[in-house]
Design a protein around this nucleic acid. Sequence first.
DNA 1: ATTTGGCGGTAAACCGCTTAACTGAGGTGT
DNA 2: ACACCTCAGTTAAGCGGTTTACCGCCAAAT
Lengths: 354, 354
Amino acid sequence: MVTMKDVAQRAGVSIATVSFLLNDTKPVTAATRARIEQAMLDLGYRRNMVARALASRRTHIIAMAYPALEHRFGMSTSEFFTSAAEAARKEDYHLVLWPVGNDGVELRELLGQGLVDGVVLMEVQLDDPRIDVLRQAATPFALIGRTTEPAGLSHVDIDFDTTVEDAVRHLYERGHRQLALISGDLDDPRFHEYGPWVRVDAAYRRVAAEYGLPVVVLPCSDTTSAGKAAVERLLAEHPETTAVLVLNEYAAIGVVSGLKRAGYDVPGDLSVLALLMVPETAAMTDPELTMMRTPGPELGQLGTEALIRQLEDADPLPPQLVPAKLLPGATVAAPRAPRPKAGAGRRGARKARS
Amino acid sequence: MVTMKDVAQRAGVSIATVSFLLNDTKPVTAATRARIEQAMLDLGYRRNMVARALASRRTHIIAMAYPALEHRFGMSTSEFFTSAAEAARKEDYHLVLWPVGNDGVELRELLGQGLVDGVVLMEVQLDDPRIDVLRQAATPFALIGRTTEPAGLSHVDIDFDTTVEDAVRHLYERGHRQLALISGDLDDPRFHEYGPWVRVDAAYRRVAAEYGLPVVVLPCSDTTSAGKAAVERLLAEHPETTAVLVLNEYAAIGVVSGLKRAGYDVPGDLSVLALLMVPETAAMTDPELTMMRTPGPELGQLGTEALIRQLEDADPLPPQLVPAKLLPGATVAAPRAPRPKAGAGRRGARKARS
DNA sequence: ATTTGGCGGTAAACCGCTTAACTGAGGTGT
DNA sequence: ACACCTCAGTTAAGCGGTTTACCGCCAAAT
């Protein structure tokens, strides 16, 4: 292995000078610089990260901590990983993957090893014990997602308010007045603390009120079968509905196939707009789902950048809320009949096919 | 930060003794052991990975190198990442994510940093320049996937032969004699070197021949729309087909919806069996796809374990070929009519379903 | 002519841990 | 009784860098 000593020797300078040049931490004359650089080239020198880390107390490694066991990884999980890894590389950091429990025990253990300069925390809970662990360890961190009181915490998250607003407006502008939200299942004890669901739910109720729309919200867990079931209930209980927003990814698929199976034409009889989805999934339905594309890649990247800013103590990135952006598909159209106004007519459907 | 020196001091021993105890690299009397352990407990000592790495020349970090830019990540990518990360943790290693180009340039750069003890290489090409880079760097590595000549290389891969055999047998046993494979698009220059597609194609031709079945293979890239197009062509060119195997994940979705759109009943009119898929995706079609579940988690885990074995120079794990296992869904049934071909009487079935 | 001070460069002390070589106090064999 | 092992521990030399003093030199200031 070629070390700095070798380079220094060949360039006829001291090892310190090489270090100063490499880190640009002290000026060096053009002549010596040239000699050193030539020497490095000749020898094929590569600076050893580990030694550097030990001496400088900065490893240039950051961790992405995500809930282990949790096998309900959506499509967007790998987007987080890859976008974060790329952002890290770009800044000359490495990203390690840390599957950790939600209680923070494993996280504390890992932090103790002194391997990482900072942590990007995924799937942040509304009240997250891991944050205390990070604080106690005095380890810089950034959140993807946020707690109930995120003020002062470096974080990025989906802008649920804007996302829902945009979604509702999209439908409203096309004439829809009878909307429904197929939401997350907040009654499920595992999720009534789940930020995205809570926030979308709240945002929707607010926006619907603003638009003077009736508030129809059906809980639904994130599976296609749950989606089918939810839409059946919707048709039975609120047949006047002309457009449905679906929060969950897999549920949205279920909603579309449930509608088709029930003989409804999408978007003829009912429009469907998926709220947080990735294009690959949306393309799977027939017709292709119109969706708000979940900003997974942006979040992974921004979260990482926010963390690295702290580490390089540049001016900290302010909290970023990124809305999901509309990605048109083929499941939204104008409602079939002129809008029925207060209490007026409603429609079933009878398209069938086989 | 509590260092080994602190511990040694408090326990009244030399720092070396602490190290020997920690690494179990030299015997220590019960009495001193107890004193040291107590001291560590009192002080809350955590051994510093970086210093250890520098001194021992083993970082206990491994990299997962995967092709950057390649945004055609299937659902199984995050399975690789998480299963590898978990396997690494279990053995007290850390996993870093390295998005690298296929030419090996970035990989060489990263290896030079001396950060990792070894590399798990994903998406191995049939002739992969990155392997030479790893060899030159004398870095231990394991492959997920394999080259044309994988002998001598530590690797794990899907057992395409068994997978295809099992798939064909499954259909054959249910009475199908007119199969078709909707394969990868090997004509696409980007992919005619893509191992999984090449191997499935080859395996299918072999197995079909063994079973005395006509060989019908349609190329198809991995999108739902390509799947739809492919199945339309299939219906036009080979209307006698009673069951279709689909290699690609998204294509399989397209095949099902294409069939439904064309007025075919699945599986009544045509059975569909997806070859390499994850359950989450399969659940999205209606009816749910019958599939061979791609062994993503196993591969990530086994690849990591194989690498770590090398690093700990235990007896090396032999190359592992893991077949995809059948996961029943609702898209395979017996063919409707008795098979029209020459030869003896056979019985088809006429189960239908709606 | 002497002082001052900036500047390119060096020496050496770490960073926290591993490990080879060494020490010294019991047992053993003869 | 003496040399010879064993065995738990210790000393100290690294691992490959970073970083804080410090030094000598020359130009500008006095």
